[in-house]
Amino acid sequence: MTVTEQEITDYVARVRAALADLPPAVRDELTEDLAEHLAEVAAEADGSLVERLGEPEAYAAELRGAAGVGAAGGDRRFSRRFGAVGDRLRARVRRWDAQLGPPLGYATASEFLRLLNPAWWVVRGYLAAMLVTVITTGGSFGLLPSLNGSELAGLVLLGGSVLASIWLGHRTAGLSRPKRRLLLAGHAVLVVFALVGLVSVDDRARWNDYGGYEPISVDGRYDHIRDVFVYDSEGRLVQNARLFDQNGDPIRLGYPDCPDLRDPHGTGNPLLRAYPYCPDAAPFAPRPTVTAPGPVPPPLPTASGEPTATPAPTATPAPTATPATSAPPAPTGSASPTPASPSAGPTG
């Protein structure tokens, strides 16, 4: 035996290189036994492989012809194989078609589906109108189409596209093959669009269901707010306050997490509850009656070191400012430069 292992390996490598245009699976299948086969050939007679079998490239060309994979990249072989797979698949679908029909009350499932065809045409028209809406408005969309922000134009568009879709539905059978493919591709786009749109609409619907506390004209900076306390110019806590934006829409902030005293059984709509939800949790103690001590009414509670004579219940440097006394504490030790009136002394 004059042929070495190396020679066989090289020969196989060159044959494979000459078949490089074939799909890898086909090439592998074609050449997986080639080394063993060449070893058999080598064992039969003397002489190098090239002397007896010719150049690897010629061998590859002959192999191609015999195995039925044309020079055109093995398409023929592939389509034949996929053709067989397709036939099997079609047979299976036909079987399912016949099996699923009776439970639906029809001879075959496809007979039932055919009845739904016009419904699909209407849905297709609607989806096309929605797609136009999304393209023209740039992403945001609801459930009804609109054209350049006009709902009326959107409805006209909807009617037109549904009618066009029905018209097209009646003529699909007569379309040429390339046109039908185009239609199929369009359907694929619409179905993907419909799924994406459905998910996004569903998302928003869920969010709205979630207690309805979606903040209006408020961004994430206010997410941490649980309650709202309104003080009047006298520093008194305003009960039953309601907030509205410029459109008259109620501004919903926070969430009522303590029972409503006026509605202890919680039968009322929690959305209609006024601020503050929990008056007891007010950050600044309510002062129902104020004996205004100074010439200036107590300002709104601020955290500033405003050098007024009457520190409102704030975090001012006044050391005794916080207790809920009925009268403001004396500005002892505060840096109040104003001449505090003597009447502002502690009244008990």
Binding site: E44, L53, L63, A66, G68
Partner: peptide, 27 residues
């Protein structure tokens, strides 16, 4: 493989090539 090639040639199909037989067997 080689045995099959030899049988074909002995039967008179002199021009059949090794690659053809190998490819046919694979197919």
């Amino acid at each position: 493989g080689y045995d099959i090639l030899r049988r074909l040639r002995e039967a008179g199909l002199d021009e059949v090539g090794d690659a053809s037989v190998y490819g046919t067997l694979r197919r």
